[in-house]
Design a protein around this nucleic acid. Structure first.
Lengths: 339, 339
DNA sequence: CTGAAAGCGCTAACAA
DNA sequence: TTGTTAGCGCTTTCAG
């Protein structure tokens, strides 16, 4: 891509100066006569000129590049959010780099370091460590995805975890389940764990049920985590009489548990009810189809992108927090008990 | 991120000239005395200096940014390849931008256009359109993933589709299957379709079987495509006597077909055998677990990254073509027939 | 509304 | 082995 055509060449063809060309291409509203603008645009079109991002970046310290860091890009929940971010940001002239942490703090730190090289204008992140201070100190224009941090200092897009969890639990309850196990993330911050757990505890109490600590599990929110958890669950003495439903941290986990259960001769949705969270596409394809809580992924991604644009445009802006409610998607993985 | 610390400042602290600092940080092997190098490195560490990529890019027309374009990032097959590319390239000081085409030619073209803005040094792509000419003409340093193009003009990493397909078909044959349906991609180039189809045709002929055109299906290689295909398949008059196995274009499709079949009361792996291709993680988790052909994803991604680095380093290099063989992974989705 | 001119931070000749 | 110097292409005062 030998690119000899630069702003100077465009100016020459259009019969104006470099400055005028610059004013036209950087739509900052610099005053240019319609005639001059037209001439420039024509020259640009004719030459197939594209502005050199390095030179521009060197001047305005803008890379038009955003970094999005998620824990698991192979999980459709995240890939759809990333997609939404991409769609929105690309419309804004931005490119998006996707980072995958695999729930690893080290990888997350590596991405934060990569950000430090000054290549990116902004960051959208679902933090594993939840180390907001690091981001705040570095003065990085960032948007958090996930309702983890309590900080009001930083723009956040998330789901109302407590509401969503309660929704799931209430449905299980309505179907006659009373002995409900809960599985939360084994990675992630204490705070995060406690949010889902808090909803669980609150619910148990509100219904006047008894909280059995052995019914509170943690797992890696992945297919492998589901297999491991199932083994753990089935090895609980007398589990059949102690558990009639499992509320899972996400769909990937829920589906994996379903499969593992069936492999062990337990029929999910009949012998044991399963409810997930996220409503990834696969949830509708499993056997039985998974009952779960849907989160508005596209909307969340779009909003995250939106907030980032605003933040980059005005770094001193007061941060906003957008929490979206979950909705119940009823399928076949929860049995109806007449208790 | 006010970054006042530049090469000049480093030079001042280290007591050398800007050039010397530049020589140290761009490890091109410019001759620098150990003593000077040490002083520079110390100054860099002390000031927390990171080189301004725009300025550097402006000089050497290098962005240290690579674009990877795949058809479906939510498919673990692709996300693992991307991961491998990332791992390799990040070690080289590169960042990776991931593009998702959704099998859409328009989106692919949009990414090619994005590349044209000069932001990227290189491209790794699984082309939907297979429009290699466009890439070639633009003189883009690129590596193709997938065995589609016949061109020897461009570096390519892929799987030996014919070999892999034959492996699958032979296994079905060995298990006693004689009426084998095949499903290839409905999108993608004619050439691509014909490659898998050719293997099928060759196999049928080699075994002296009769080719039934109605057993040749095309589908979108996705979960939705699988549902649709299953309906199509089950509506084939007398399918029970005409098909005893289905060879699928990829695992996502195969799994979806399994689920759809079961929903229709047909037991996969018993009433109808299914064999996939890719060996994505989910293949081991389905019910029944999917028999499939494994492709060396990580190795392929690593090699693609490798080739791209070489190409960027020396654009006039003769392109290489690396085709990896598939291996059979036997699980439970293929019945053993005593015919 | 437009043009001239001064760099942004870095690298690569070229000299020393 | 080192330092000096001239830009890379663009934006942005500052005059006009």
């Amino acid at each position: 891509m030998k690119q000899k055509i630069n702003i100077h060449e465009v100016a020459r063809i259009a019969g104006v100066s470099k400055s005028t060309v610059s004013r036209v291409i950087s739509d900052k509203g610099g005053s240019v006569s319609p005639k001059a603008a037209a001439a420039v645009n024509e020259a640009i079109a004719r030459l197939g000129y594209t502005r050199n991002t390095f030179a521009a970046g060197l001047r305005n310290a803008r890379s038009y590049l955003a970094l999005v860091v998620v824990p698991d890009i192979a999980n459709p929940f995240w890939s759809e959010i990333v997609r939404a971010v991409q769609d929105r940001l690309e419309g804004e002239g931005y490119s998006v780099v996707v980072g995958n942490t695999d729930w690893s703090e080290d990888r997350e730190l590596a991405y934060l370091k990569l950000f430090g090289t000054g290549r990116f204008d902004g960051l959208i992140i679902n933090s594993v460590t939840d180390d907001v201070d690091l981001i705040l100190e570095a003065g990085i224009p960032a948007v958090l995805i996930g309702e983890r941090s309590e900080t009001a200092q930083i723009d956040t897009v998330g789901t109302a975890t407590h509401q969503a969890a309660t929704l799931a639990l209430q449905y299980l309850y309505d179907q006659g389940h009373r002995r409900i196990a809960v599985v939360t993330s084994e990675t992630g911050s204490e705070r995060f764990l406690s949010r889902r757990y808090t909803a669980y505890k609150d619910f148990i109490q509100a219904k006047g049920l008894e909280l059995d600590p052995e019914l509170v599990f943690t797992a890696h929110l992945s297919a492998e985590g589901g297999e491991r958890l199932t083994r753990e669950l089935l090895s609980l003495p007398g589990w059949k009489d102690r558990i009639d439903a499992v509320f899972c941290g996400n769909d990937i986990l829920a589906i994996s548990i379903q499969n593992s259960l069936r492999a062990a001769g337990v029929v999910p949705g009949k012998d044991l009810s399963i409810i997930g969270m996220d409503d990834i596409p696969a949830a509708a394809l499993t056997w039985p189809a998974l009952t779960t809580i849907r989160k508005p992924r596209a909307e969340m991604g779009r909003m995250a992108a939106e907030l980032l644009m605003k933040k980059i445009g005005d770094p001193s802006r007061t941060p906003e927090k957008h929490l979206y409610p979950g909705t119940l998607v009823i399928r076949d993985s929860v049995a109806h008990l007449r208790s």
